[in-house]
Simulated scan of single mutants.
Amino acid sequence: MRLVTERLRVLYGFSRGTQAGLSVAQPLIGALIVTDRPSLLRLFTMALAALAGYVAVFAANDLMDARLDRRRFAHERAYDGFDLDSTGARHPLARGQLSMFAAAVWVGGLAVLAAALCAALEPMCLVLFATAVALQIGYCLLATVSQYKFVLSGLMVAAGALAGAFAMPVQRPVVPLLLLAVWMIAWEVGGRNIVNDMADADEDVHLGIRTVPVVYGLRTASILACGCSLLAATASVGLAVHRWSFFGPVGLAGAVLATAGTVLAPAVRLMCDPGPRMAMKMFNRASLQPVCLLVAFAVAVLLRR
């Protein structure tokens, strides 16, 4: 039993299970902005597809970066705070806790499951999933090449969220989809990618990994992260306003409160203290924004029925 538990812990860490689970909120929001009466079966199928897809994509990141991660341990920073990305086990493949074959089978099997479920829902969902996978591969390949790879990461997250909207067989207005895409891109870049790079800057500089904080410094990185976070906050609240007929005052109030607590307040603190510790705190808090808004939107929809 202990061996099984340990293997599950390793796979959970390899797949960044906490982040993968939280990420399912993004396509679910995509579904709720196009219909306030979604099919429960479609929602469940989409959530399962999203979970399999996100687990596969996060694990693929570690699979492709295994060589870099092995070198990372020579300059590994001490963790004196909570890191949402490292729950379970940190880079278990690079540490030898998981074989390359097992890792490839895990990623491939989950990717096939996600692709099959996406195809069953809507061909466009499969296209968006394939796009997200291609963007993730591109992101990993650019690790030591360009500090602007964060653009690919933002587009990848937007593709996943938009898949939720296309999974619903209803009319899809353009404006909500654009607001969702802007929100997801800005949130991923400002709330997760750059601040995570800020926390890892000391390690990345030894590995030759090009990131905004490594190339331009922590202060510039914090300004860009906070600017993108402000855009993400504006787009997410704007989405609640635009879909007033779905979410009403409850959804709007929930969006404002959740965004202020998970994105804006941490961004202000980061501007005052643009260091790795505060960057990790912002990463952890900002990662919760879509989940908090999903809860607010879902409650609002249920109350209006």
Score class of each variant (00 low, 15 high):
300 A>Q: 05
144 T>F: 03
91 H>R: 09
262 T>G: 14
158 A>W: 02
192 R>H: 11
219 R>W: 11
108 G>P: 13
204 D>F: 01
164 G>V: 08
281 K>S: 11
249 P>C: 00
31 A>F: 07
196 N>K: 14
137 I>V: 15
188 E>K: 11
163 A>H: 07
128 L>T: 07
42 R>W: 03
83 D>E: 08
52 A>P: 00
154 G>I: 03
236 S>Q: 08
214 V>E: 03
44 F>P: 01
159 A>W: 04
176 P>H: 10
237 V>S: 12
277 R>N: 08
56 A>K: 05
23 S>L: 10
143 A>L: 14
199 A>Q: 06
165 A>L: 11
127 V>G: 01
197 D>Y: 02
264 L>K: 09
58 F>A: 11
193 N>M: 13
99 S>F: 03
28 L>T: 03
199 A>V: 05
24 V>S: 03
105 V>A: 14
34 V>A: 08
111 A>R: 08
95 R>Y: 10
33 I>A: 04
236 S>V: 13
226 C>Q: 07
50 A>L: 01
241 V>T: 05
163 A>I: 10
272 C>W: 14
3 L>T: 12
146 S>K: 01
96 G>L: 08
142 L>Y: 12
63 L>T: 04
269 R>H: 14
56 A>C: 10
91 H>A: 12
136 Q>A: 15
104 A>M: 13
143 A>M: 15
142 L>R: 10
167 A>I: 09
155 L>T: 06
65 D>F: 07
142 L>Q: 15
19 Q>V: 13
4 V>I: 07
114 A>R: 01
207 L>I: 06
224 L>Y: 00
214 V>Y: 01
257 L>G: 03
195 V>T: 07
84 L>Y: 11
43 L>K: 02
10 V>Q: 02
99 S>R: 06
9 R>S: 02
29 I>D: 03
154 G>Q: 04
90 R>V: 05
93 L>S: 01
163 A>F: 10
46 M>T: 06
36 D>S: 13
143 A>G: 08
65 D>I: 01
36 D>F: 07
21 G>S: 08
234 T>E: 07
64 M>V: 04
181 A>G: 02
25 A>D: 05
72 R>D: 03
246 F>L: 06
273 D>C: 14
265 A>S: 13
214 V>N: 02
138 G>L: 08
77 R>H: 12
92 P>Y: 06
37 R>K: 08
112 V>M: 14
124 M>N: 00
135 L>S: 10
119 A>C: 13
283 F>P: 00
131 T>A: 10
147 Q>P: 09
204 D>E: 07
83 D>C: 00
10 V>L: 04
126 L>K: 13
47 A>E: 05
150 F>W: 14
151 V>L: 14
263 V>E: 11
121 L>Q: 10
214 V>L: 03
193 N>P: 05
280 M>G: 01
67 R>G: 00
301 V>K: 04
33 I>V: 15
104 A>N: 12
209 I>H: 03
136 Q>P: 03
264 L>G: 11
47 A>Y: 03
164 G>I: 05
283 F>E: 06
130 A>I: 12
196 N>V: 10
182 V>W: 01
215 V>D: 06
224 L>H: 01
91 H>V: 02
248 G>R: 01
84 L>P: 05
291 V>H: 05
11 L>F: 12
45 T>G: 05
303 L>N: 13
296 A>Q: 07
